[in-house]
């Protein structure tokens, strides 16, 4: 029981990070049909932002970095969208390969700028320690994810921009003829989604070292969250991320790290037998 409880915060904080990463993916995928493999490198950019801010702000770097990393990663996403991805709308498989090329370049860039070895970001002192088996840093990440979900929910349902985003996601043509500037909505979605990856990167500095390949460890799992949660579905992403995070940490605990990924993969395939389009489906009459 003790061990069972110990795994819980680990699993939930992995799920929280996956959620932050997957939110951006699920919206860009659901709204624009873009599979952004460079998303992982936005995570890395966020993490390195915290690392660089350390010189200025010392141990408060993680806190200061949250908004800064959001902006940095968001801008990177915006540039990528404007420069390349917008020419590829409607061809998801091509965007996948294109952005993979971008991700290779960004990784190598990070290697040249910051060096290949991993670097550390010092967590604020008040995040060290914990209550009983709940480390503060994991709690912080969990709280960050909860706050983000509330923020995104409010954005989508309570602001005009968010409603326009939902409209475009549900039916692009109808949204366009209703006077919504879909190109602008796409840009905004991309900015927010990429920015969240940057935030996830900052969160990751609390639980591990930062390296040029940081994003690659999480991107595949984050995509699995999208697949299991359903396209563009906030609820789906939340549940799938929590499920996948917990499954990951308990599978590692009960078997070992090398089998855990195989178990997770098998679980996803089994899950797709019942819900081939993920937990929640955006109903549409469009014929594919």
């Amino acid at each position: 029981m003790e061990a069972f409880l110990n795994q819980l915060p680990i699993g939930l904080s992995i799920g929280a990070v996956l959620l932050l990463i997957a939110l951006g993916l699920t919206f860009t995928f659901g709204q624009m049909g873009v599979i952004n493999m460079a998303h992982g490198e936005f995570i890395m950019a966020g993490a390195y932002t915290a690392y660089l801010l350390q010189d200025l702000t010392g141990r408060m770097a993680v806190i200061v970095a949250l908004p800064v990393a959001f902006l940095v990663a968001g801008l990177m996403g915006l540039i990528l969208e404007r420069a390349a991805i917008r020419h590829f709308y409607g061809r998801p498989l091509d965007t996948l390969l294109l952005t993979w090329g971008v991700s290779l370049v960004l990784q190598q860039l990070a290697r040249d700028l910051f060096g290949a070895p991993n670097v550390q970001v010092q967590a604020p002192t008040w995040l060290q320690g914990g209550i009983a088996s709940l480390p503060y840093n994991r709690l912080f990440i969990f709280g960050l994810a909860v706050a983000t979900v509330i923020g995104i929910w409010a954005y989508m349902n309570r602001t005009g921009a968010g409603r326009r985003m939902q409209a475009v996601m549900q039916n692009r043509q109808l949204a366009a003829v209703s006077g919504i500037n879909t190109a602008r909505v796409d840009q905004r979605t991309f900015f927010i989604g990429s920015g969240l990856a940057g935030v996830a990167g900052v969160a990751l500095t609390l639980i591990g070292p930062v390296g040029p390949a940081l994003g690659t460890y999480y991107i595949v799992d984050a995509f699995l969250v999208v697949v299991a949660g359903g396209l563009g579905q906030l609820r789906g992403a939340v549940i799938a991320a929590a499920g996948l995070g917990l499954l990951n940490s308990y599978a590692e605990f009960w078997s070992d790290a090398s089998l855990a990924k195989v178990i997770v993969f098998a679980a996803i395939i089994a899950f797709l037998q019942f819900r081939p389009q993920g937990l929640f489906v955006l109903r549409s009459r469009a014929l594919t």
């Binding site: 995928f29 049909g33 599979i35 998801p92 498989l93 996948l96 595949v220 799992d221 995509f223 699995l224 999208v226 697949v227 993969f265 996803i268 395939i269």
Partner: peptide, 11 residues
């Protein structure tokens, strides 16, 4: 489509 691609990559 993309779902399948992601699954093969996860594999």
């Amino acid at each position: 489509g993309a779902y399948f691609a992601i699954l093969t990559q996860a594999l």
